[in-house]
Amino acid sequence: MSAAQLAGYCDDHLHLLACAAARRSSDVRAATSVGGLLSLIRQGAREQAAAGGPGSWLRAWGYDDALLDERRHPTVAELDAAAQDVPAVLHHITGHVALVNTAAGRALGLAGGELLIERQDVLAGVPRSDRAETVSGVAAVLADLAEANITICTDATHTNDLEALELLADAAAAVPTVSITAMVGAGRLASLGDRGFGTAVQGAEAAKGGPGSVRIGHAKVMPPHDDDSAIAALVAEARAHGFPVAIHVMDIDTLDATLDALEAHPLPGPAVESDRIEHCALALPEQLDRIAQLGVKVVTQPSFVTRRAQKYREQLSPTEQEWLWPLGSLLRRGICVTLSSDAPTVPPDPAEWIEAATGRDLAPAERIDAETARRLCWRSGAGR
């Protein structure tokens, strides 16, 4: 596909700050075994110790335990041996979990031997780049999007608050050719003050007369620690602030809880935008019928079907594989769909999404034609 054909595409679900952080991290995506992963950690720790001196942390990113030969995470002892005394944080490619060695765990106040970290409040204690460096990193990510002819993007990060939106707006000032909409965590809407859905947030440069701004998007609902019982309360909180919601859904049980919450807390009056389901990785046919009845939009990532095919074949039954990452079934029900990357987990490359949507091996009944797939990379999507 030519650059001209890709012009104007939208990545409707990515994570700009995570993309910038991944660029600053040791990239371990090439590891295919625990031994290979530890070798990369060992090399990164040596480089970090030489460059940063005492107290410097190693941040590595991009491993997937399900795709390593051993199908497991490294142990604490293995990480300790590889990183030595350098505090090391190893981020899973999904961004939802991280591993820490003993030195990092001690600095974060964790109990001895605790390894797998899913709590964002704990990971927030890892030292970060200063604001200027972070803005510069996000601007570099936006420049890459522009180079790929992606001119619109939606940051779907559940930890976003007003401070994060202002930071993104400063980065947008440097790359005004990419329009940013950013979600805000459903539990963080109070940080916006009187700013509502669809309004603009300006950064420091914009306040000085620069062009940078970010549109406030949906309230992002991320069930804490996979506690689906929290979804209804977060949807209710979003409604109290006048926001449509975008709910993270990766399995059938979470989808059931999501649909129950949306039915219990409908959008009031004529909505400016519909609610969204993010991912929709597994869905029963009757659940898809409910999505259609509710008029909810689905923002999905077809690249996962091809990039994680081995994992799905090993971990899902043949019947579950037929329910995996529905696409054709959504469109046949008239559901509005857009394709996206979930970057940095998957590269923001519309050509890859289209190829995955049209040529997937798992659940081939969900394939769609190339022209439809191309249309789904635009913000408007397809269906109603």
Rank of each mutant, 00 (worst) to 15 (best):
H279R: 11
L262R: 00
L284N: 15
A271S: 06
G295V: 03
I277S: 04
D275Y: 01
K297Q: 15
G269R: 05
L262H: 01
L267H: 01
I277M: 06
G269D: 06
R290E: 10
I291D: 08
L262D: 02
L294C: 10
L267N: 02
C280F: 13
G269A: 09
A271E: 03
A271M: 00
H279D: 08
V298K: 06
L262E: 00
R276A: 05
V296M: 09
R276Q: 11
I291V: 15
A292W: 00
T300D: 02
P268F: 01
P266I: 03
P285K: 10
D289W: 02
E278L: 15
V299W: 07
L288Q: 08
C280S: 10
A281W: 12
A271G: 00
L294G: 12
H279G: 08
K297A: 13
V298I: 13
I291E: 08
H265N: 10
P268S: 12
P268W: 04
I277G: 04
I291W: 08
L294Y: 10
A271Q: 02
E273Y: 03
E286M: 12
D275Q: 01
E263G: 14
R276T: 05
E263I: 11
D275K: 03
P285V: 10
L288G: 06
Q301Y: 12
R290M: 09
A283W: 01
I277W: 04
E278N: 14
E273W: 01
V272S: 09
I291Q: 06
Q293C: 10
V296I: 15
K297L: 13
L282R: 12
L288V: 11
I291C: 13
G295K: 02
L262W: 01
I291M: 14
P268E: 10
E263Q: 14
R290C: 07
P270C: 10
G295R: 04
R290F: 06
P268G: 05
K297H: 15
E286D: 15
L282K: 10
T300I: 04
G269M: 01
E263L: 10
V298R: 08
P266L: 04
C280D: 09
R290I: 08
D275T: 03
A281K: 13
K297F: 07
S274H: 03
I291T: 10
I291R: 08
L294R: 11
S274K: 05
K297V: 14
